[in-house]
Computed example of a mutant assay.
Amino acid sequence: MNIIFLGPPGAGKGTQAKRLEQQYGIVQISTGDMLRAEVAAGTQIGLEAKGLMEAGKLIPDSVIVAMLESRIAKPDCAKGFILDGFPRTVAQAEALDAMLTRTDSRIDTVLVLEVDEEVLADRISGRFSCKSCGASYHDSFRPTQKDGVCDICGGHDFIRRPDDNRETVMKRLDAYNAETKPLLPYYESKGLISVIDGMAPIEEVSSQIDAVMDGITKLTKK
């Protein structure tokens, strides 16, 4: 089963993709990790990508799609894969479709996590974690029980990601809307869109996704 995850930064795609990976035995593919692996292995594609990066140039879609073709041919992708972060543009989606057609494969569904962007910005901009044990907190939704003290380890040092501020979050959301939202009508025209309420509790989001997965499984068995 081959899946694309779409949704703005912080919508929970990574959490759900990891769960699907464990539950269904399909592989979550990060194009960034894939690129680093190809460069480290010194493959032809990796060497080409390394040369482009060292020259300060963007990696062409054709190179990324070629790396993806090599990655999904590996045995651990036999049951399928999850793409989170690719494609980002219609041109990339078209290149991906061409590659999958050539390899006699296809995308089974595009899961779209819909969220309220204002609420999402509040969620992300309030996040912080314990420096000692990594426990996660939020200023409004999950503060520490005792101010300045970690509930788990009793630590007093907390950290916030530099980009977890409202201004940066809104810029990331604007970029998503400008670049990635045009993918929705592209995949909608193919009947692949499955909209998920990303504002629901995590367990409910998981149930919605599982219902989509069950529906695909039933169709493929017919």
Rank of each mutant, 00 (worst) to 15 (best):
T43I: 11
P60T: 07
V90F: 11
L96I: 12
G46F: 05
I64W: 02
A40F: 00
M34F: 07
K74G: 06
S70H: 11
L35M: 15
A93M: 10
G46K: 08
I29S: 00
D84V: 00
K79T: 10
E94S: 10
L96A: 08
R36E: 04
R88P: 12
L58G: 02
I64A: 12
D61K: 01
M53K: 05
S70Y: 05
I64F: 02
M53N: 01
L35G: 09
I59N: 01
R71Q: 11
D84Y: 00
P75W: 13
D76M: 09
E69N: 04
L83M: 09
L96M: 13
C77K: 08
A55N: 06
G51W: 08
I64P: 11
P87K: 04
I82N: 06
S30Y: 06
A91L: 10
I45M: 12
K74Y: 00
L47W: 00
A93D: 11
K74W: 00
G56T: 10
D33A: 09
I59L: 15
V39L: 04
D61F: 06
S70Q: 15
Q92E: 14
I72C: 08
A73F: 04
T31W: 02
G46Q: 05
F81P: 10
L68I: 11
A41V: 07
T31F: 01
T43G: 07
F81G: 03
E38Y: 06
V63W: 09
D61V: 14
L96Y: 08
I72D: 10
R36F: 13
D84S: 01
G32Y: 11
A49V: 15
K74C: 12
K79Q: 15
A95V: 05
D76V: 12
A49R: 03
A93T: 13
R71D: 02
A73Y: 02
E38R: 09
E94G: 00
M67N: 10
A91D: 13
I72S: 08
P60H: 04
